[in-house]
Design a protein around this nucleic acid. Structure first.
Lengths: 160, 160
DNA sequence: AAAATTTGCGTAATCACTTACGTAATTGTT
DNA sequence: AACAATTACGTAAGTGATTACGCAAATTTT
């Protein structure tokens, strides 16, 4: 019995988190299946660099909508794996630019193939949904960003 | 620009996690607004105990679908706040049973009122959605639990 | 051109879990 | 009854992000 599934909107946070972790873990399996030494959490930054070719820490962080320490952390891992390299910017002494290494660029086509398959498969699951998760999440995100939870709550409370 | 929002199903994990954290953080505000010293993450276990009146660590962990160390952790916090108490089981010397303390029981009606309001408000947000997040998540959860991601992937790959 | 502000990055501490492992108590097997 | 297997719980360490803080370089203000 899973109590949480009966609580409706309450305790929804943990449920979303669990789902996201399930999805992540699924991704791991797929890379392993293809014998590729790559982690799902590296995807966003790696993909970003494959599009942008070169970018600073903050630029990536903003592009991916995560904090910059998170990028530094991932970048460390990817650099350790030799998939990206970093060098100080010439124009701005504060900046450190990241880009795909030779090894990273070599791996890219393989990864792209895998991503494409994952994308297709996920799309299949998602398109079979009556209520589309992606759209639903986007709607909630938008609703939330308009107004803080507390404001919303106070308003609701005043009316109720 | 938020790159993730353009990636479709890929990199969806972190996005869900972030949304869940936003929801959690919103919850904090609401308790604070009511001047109640309670954290959103305590809700599942507290609610569970309000229904079950007494339960062991494992029973709660399974009921809430989290690992037992997580329950131990939360229980420590709730016990520190004096909201629950624990005592060794008489029948089974390995077990430690948790239940609401007097203070916890006293707080319960207030919490229930708050929960009801949160629930109503969330329901309002959710009902205004064209694509219902709750239903969407349930659908995905169900789809996922049927078959592992990897199995699904292999099958997909075989057909594709 | 000096001073104040902002920006880019790095580190440390924290958070809310998880996995891994250990131990004692109970239950099941022969 | 002895042994093996399982169960309940506890602790420790790891994970993947966050906030908080600090510093140096660049930019803006006056």
């Amino acid at each position: 019995m899973d109590l949480i599934s009966e609580l409706g909107p309450l305790a929804f946070g943990s449920r979303l988190k669990r789902l996201s972790e399930t999805i992540m873990r699924g991704g791991e399996d797929v890379y392993r299946f293809y014998g590729v030494d790559f982690q799902p959490k590296w995807f966003p930054i790696f993909y970003f660099l494959s599009q942008k070719s070169e970018a600073g820490i903050m630029e990536i962080a903003e592009g991916l909508n995560v904090t910059h320490p998170a990028i530094i952390q991932m970048a460390k891992e990817l650099e350790k794996k030799g998939l990206i390299i970093s060098k100080k910017s010439d124009e701005d002494a504060r900046k450190r630019n990241l880009k795909l290494s030779k090894k990273g660029k070599t791996l890219l086509p393989t990864l792209q193939k895998i991503w494409e398959e994952i994308k297709l498969m996920n799309a299949e699951i998602i398109e079979n949904q009556e209520h589309n998760l992606l759209i639903a999440v986007k709607e909630i995100e938008d609703a939330w960003s308009e107004k803080s939870y507390l404001e919303r709550f106070k308003e609701f409370h005043k009316l109720g």
